[in-house]
Nucleic acid binder design. Structure first.
Lengths: 248, 248
DNA sequence: CGGCCTCTTTGCGCCAGCGCAAGGACAGCT
DNA sequence: AGCTGTCCTTGCGCTGGCGCAAAGAGGCCG
């Protein structure tokens, strides 16, 4: 699907809660500072550690934000889709990209220079506040992942990752909820903090149990409820059925 | 040490980069909306899941922000000290505390109601922007921890945790850098994503090597450089010396 | 000074899940 | 149809580090 520049901008702005509460005049002012770009699948919008030269507002497609460790292992920090801002948040800190952004699909995005962006923030207080709320949401979700990583087992983390993805990029299809992005086992491993092998084994097991349908770069959640159960109730192998919360 | 209310407010405001760039008149306006509180060690400023009733600006002491998982395991998300804001950030999202805040010391803090706080943001755009930068920094550090947790081994994570703590709450003493907070092995475990046992063993080992001095709820970093080496260069047990980055 | 409570150390067993290797399946291209 | 490259599966061995239990070491208080 190809959109005109105006339509692109419009749809991106309309979908972005970031711009909620701004007047029409403000929006026009904003729109003038953004420039359209296109990226092919697997292309990088920017690289970890580089000085920030542009922020992007996603219009079409999805990107992953990854961090790479010295020995080459990757972690996916976020998946971002239309209406979301890429690269801006962490850069307000020190001006270098803390991760790389890679296109998962063909991506259309609107770029803005850091200087222009900061100027916008000064000019439109509403924007700063919206962005603050957005950042708060991201923080919250990253906090949850932190907790899961340190306290939960790989299997449950994977279940949670799938649930999250379903909410974020799920699309209803006949058999259930399709995760609407090309996710390899490797990518799922990086999202859930485990290895490609464990992901493969676990997904297969769940397919046997009728919870999922899996294919190459494709997961359909057939039984959402069963998955939620796996994510929330899945006990330790041999365990107390459930301990009530101490401060319940 | 006991401070007058005014002195408390002054010192807290002065230390908070949050209030940088605000005029004297603005500061007076702000100060009027904050109310002093005191908490004893181990007391909770607020509890995970509760509706937010107040945010706090730290004046004296330190708090930990923790999340608890269903089976009772805790993770420390942040340690916060004087000049930092407690509880506000994640609440801008949905209004419930995503973690509990527990005093590590005796704590003096200034509270403000969420409504007043949001009003301040509207009134003082500078404040929103400052807060945004602050949130960006937090995001960045949490991202690093996420990456470390999924890609690095327990020993190295612990080394990093100590380095971070040294920068954050370190105090120079004769023997080296003292971590100036009552940190049990358990707390270090929750910060570095491992178990109390592994922390104990590893610290002892490093003490033998002369990197640290450890005691009950007490760590002094003797050889900062050695610790940094452990955090950054510590290779896999039997390993390639170092692989250059693929896209270097 | 003796008792208590919390924090810490250490030996030992065990298993979740990582890592490799080999083979299979699928998609796109010519 | 055949080729090629990428992605996925699965068996197998191995180990980091978790978890328990029991004993030691400080602090603190009466």
């Amino acid at each position: 699907m190809v959109l005109t520049r105006e339509a692109l901008a419009l749809s991106a702005f309309a979908r972005a809660p970031l711009f909620a509460g701004l007047g029409q005049a403000d929006l026009v002012d904003l729109a003038a500072r953004f420039h359209p770009h296109h990226f092919a699948r697997d292309e990088a919008l920017f690289h970890e550690g580089h000085r920030a030269h542009a922020y992007y507002l996603m219009a079409e497609g999805r990107v992953k934000i990854i961090q790479t460790s010295v020995d080459g292992a990757e972690v996916i920090l976020h998946l971002l889709g239309p209406g979301e801002l890429v690269g801006a948040l962490p850069n307000l800190d020190d001006g270098t990209y803390p991760g790389s952004a890679i296109a998962l699909d063909d991506v259309s995005a609107l770029s803005i220079s850091p200087a222009d962006f900061e100027a916008l923030l000064e000019l439109h207080p509403r924007l700063a506040i919206n962005l603050l709320h957005y950042a708060a949401g991201k923080l919250r979700s990253v906090h949850s992942r932190l907790r899961e990583l340190t306290t939960e087992r790989a299997e449950r983390r994977l279940a949670r990752t799938l649930s999250r993805l379903a909410a974020q990029i799920g699309r209803g299809v006949e058999a259930g909820v399709l995760l609407d992005a090309p996710l390899t086992r490797q990518a799922l491993a990086e999202l859930s903090g485990t290895s490609l092998f464990t992901v493969s084994r676990t997904l297969k097991e769940w397919e046997r149990q009728g919870v999922l349908q899996v294919g190459r770069e494709r997961v359909v959640i057939v039984n959402t409820h069963a998955l939620a159960t796996l994510a929330d109730d899945l006990p330790l192998p041999a365990s107390h059925p459930q301990r009530p919360l101490p401060h319940a």
